[in-house]
Nucleic acid binder design. Structure first.
Lengths: 351, 351
DNA sequence: TTGTAAGCGTTATCAC
DNA sequence: GTGATAACGCTTACAA
C-alpha cells in the first residue's frame, strides 16, 4: 500500500472521444440525420432513430459542447458571481443556503454552474468580463453584490441577471430579497409580547439594503407598538463579532438599559451575547436576545438562540427560477421578497 | 424607490458581440493576422499589432471561447467534484479552506471553475460524465470523494485528476492528503507532556483514509511513549456531534477513566465536550481535550479549543498546482502529504 | 510580413 | 425521411 514515491503521468492510452461522424458512420446514416435523431427532432423514422441511438451508446458518444455552443449560441451554464472569492461566498453562513437552493434548481435544469472570480479585484473583473462578453454563460446570478458601476449596467444590457439579497440604486436589475423589515418586526413584537418595554437594537452600520431594511422594520414595529424610539436603545456597529462586542460594552451600565436586544445579524448576536456576559448579565434572565439568521451556531450555543430564520434555500431557488425565466425571454418582477419566520428558542426567555 | 410592481424583460437593445472578423475589418488586415497579433505571436509587424490591438479594444472584442475551444481542445477550466451537492461541499468546515486555496491558484492561472453536481446521484453522475466526455474541462479536482468505481477509473484514463483528502484502494490516482497520523501524534504527545498517562481517543468509525490514519497516529504515539493501549480508552463513533455525545456518555463513569481525550474530528470534539459537561466534568481541570481542525468554533467555544490545525489552504493550493502539472503533461507524485500543526489553547490545560 | 485555405464538431437550411 | 451544403468564430499550415 505504500506507493508514495511513485510518480504518475497522465495516461494517454485512451482513444479520442467519438464524434457525431463516428456515430453516423456506425449507424449508416448521414451526420445531420444522426444529429436530428439524437436531439429528438421530428422527421426521422423510428427505425433510424433506434439505430442511431444504439450506435451512440455503443460508442459512448457525448456531444462536444463547444461545437454545439458555437452554433446554437447557448452554453447551458450560468455564472455565480459575488463580492468574495471562490469559497468566501460559500463560507458565509447567510449565503450558503441561498447557493444550495439555487444550485439544486440549476442542476435540475441540466445547467452547469461557473464560479466567477470575485468582483472588486481588477483581475477578477476582467475575467468576469471575459466570461460575459465571450458568451461563456447564459445568465448571471449575482449574490450580495454591492457594486453599482458599469459592470452591472453592462450585465443588464448584455446578459440576463438576477440580483440576490441586494438592490441597486440607479439601475433596475431584478432582485430576490429577504424581507428584512418583516423579520425585524417579528423579533421586536415577540420581545414586546414577552413584556419588554425597552427593546434595544444592535444593527449593522453599513450601507447595504438589508441593514437599512432591518433597522426600518425595528423602528416601524416600535412605533406600531407605541414603544419609545429612544436613541440610546440603538447601536450601529460593523457587521462582525468583535465590533458588536466592543460597541455594546457601554450599553449595560446605564440604569435604564434595554431589557431586550434585537440583533440585526448572526455575527452581531454573538458579539452582543459575549459583551453582555462579560458584564455579568445572565441570558435570558437579565437580558433577552433575538438574533438573525438560523445558522448552525444558533442551536449550538448555550442557551440556544431565538432567531429570525431567513429562508435562504427558498431565496436561492426563486432567484434561479427567475433567471431561467429571463433566459427564456419572459419578464420577471423587479423585486421578489421572501418572508422570514421567527424560531423561538431560549435566549428570548419565552420558556 | 418603490418599483416592486414593475416587470422587467431582458434588454435586447445591444448589438451582437464583435468578432475577430470585425476587428480585422476595422484594422484593415486579414482575420488570421488579427488572430496572430492579439495572441502575441511572432511574425506580425509592430505597427500592425498596434492597429489590431486598438481596433480590438475599441470594439470591446472578446474571443468567443467556444470557437477557441473547438480548435485548440483546451477549455481553460477545471471541474470541482465532491460527494455533496453544490454548496454542501463548501459548508463543510474541513473542505472550505481547501477550496479557498485551490480557487486562488486556479483563478490566478486564468482558469474557470465549474462546480460539478454531486456524485452519488444518477443525474449528478451523468452530468459529470457529460462534462468529462464532452471535454468541457481540462482537469478534475475531486474533493473528499469516497467512490472507487468506474467513475474514477474513467477519469484516470481520460482526464487529469487530483484527489484531495482521500486515497483509492484499487487505482493509483495522485492525491494530496493531510498528514492525519502526524497530527494525532502531536496531539497525543502534547497531552503526555502535560502529565497525562491515560489518554483516550474518540475517533470516527468510518472507512475513510483519514479516520484510519488518525487512529494509527494515536496508537503509534502511545506505543512510542510507552503508554497503555487500553481498549477501554478508545471509542469509535459516527462522525457527528450527536454520535460523539451519545457514544462517550458511559466513558466518564469508570474509576480509571481517561484524564485526557484526543478527538479525531472537529464534530467529535464538540460532542465529547458536551458529554463530559453533562457528566459534570470541568474542562480542562477534570478532563483535558485536544480536538482536530482549527475551525471558527475552536476559538468561539468556551474555553477555547486546543486543536490540531490542518493547513487546508495549503492542501488546496498544492492540489491545484499538481493538477496543472498533470494538465501540462508533467508527472506528479502519487501522494503528497501536508503536515498539520498543533494550536495550543485552553482545553488541554497547558496554561 | 501578410493573406489564402482548411478544418474543429455541431446544428440549420433546403433540396431531393 | 434523408442527405448535401453552409455556417458558427476561431486557429493552424502553408503559400504568396
Amino acid at each position: 500500500m505504500q506507493r508514495g514515491h511513485q510518480r504518475l503521468t497522465r495516461q494517454t492510452g485512451h482513444r479520442a472521444p467519438s464524434t457525431l461522424r463516428d456515430v453516423a458512420r456506425v449507424a449508416g446514416v448521414s451526420i445531420p440525420t444522426a444529429s436530428q435523431a439524437l436531439n429528438d427532432r421530428p422527421g426521422v423514422s423510428s427505425a433510424t432513430r433506434t439505430r442511431v441511438r444504439e450506435a451512440a451508446s455503443k460508442l459512448h458518444y457525448t456531444p462536444n459542447s463547444a461545437a454545439r455552443q458555437l452554433i446554437t449560441g447557448r452554453t447551458d451554464s450560468i455564472a455565480v458571481v459575488s463580492g468574495s472569492n471562490l469559497s468566501g461566498i460559500f463560507s458565509d453562513q447567510f449565503y450558503r443556503p441561498i447557493l444550495t437552493g439555487a444550485g439544486s434548481v440549476v442542476e435540475n435544469a441540466g445547467y452547469r454552474v461557473l464560479i466567477a472570480p470575485a468582483l472588486g479585484t481588477t483581475s477578477g473583473e476582467s475575467q468576469l468580463m471575459r466570461m460575459v462578453r465571450g458568451r461563456e454563460v447564459d445568465g448571471v446570478l449575482a449574490v450580495g453584490i454591492v457594486a453599482t458601476g458599469w459592470i452591472l449596467e453592462m450585465f443588464q444590457t448584455a446578459m440576463p441577471i438576477i440580483l440576490v439579497d441586494n438592490r441597486l440604486r440607479d439601475i433596475a436589475v431584478p432582485a430576490v430579497l429577504n424581507d428584512d423589515a418583516w423579520g425585524a418586526g417579528l423579533a421586536t413584537r415577540h420581545l414586546a409580547e414577552l413584556g419588554h418595554r425597552r427593546i434595544g437594537f444592535v444593527g449593522a452600520m453599513n450601507d447595504e439594503w438589508w441593514a437599512h431594511q432591518t433597522r426600518a422594520g425595528y423602528m416601524g414595529a416600535l412605533a406600531q407598538l407605541g414603544l419609545a424610539q429612544d436613541g440610546s436603545l440603538e447601536v450601529l456597529v460593523a457587521n462582525n463579532i468583535e465590533a458588536a462586542r466592543q460597541g455594546t460594552r457601554t450599553l449595560w451600565g446605564f440604569a435604564n438599559r434595554p431589557s431586550a436586544i434585537f440583533a440585526g445579524s448572526g455575527k452581531i448576536a454573538i458579539g452582543v451575547i459575549k459583551s453582555a456576559r462579560e458584564h455579568g448579565l445572565v441570558i435570558p434572565q437579565d437580558l433577552a436576545i433575538v438574533g438573525t439568521g438560523d445558522h448552525d451556531f444558533a442551536m449550538m450555543i448555550d442557551p440556544p438562540l431565538t432567531t429570525v430564520s431567513v429562508h435562504g434555500e427558498q431565496i436561492g431557488r426563486r432567484a434561479a427560477e427567475l433567471l431561467f425565466d429571463l433566459i427564456h425571454g419572459e419578464s420577471v418582477p423587479e423585486s421578489t421578497v421572501i418572508r422570514p419566520d421567527l424560531v423561538v428558542r431560549s435566549t428570548s426567555g419565552a420558556f
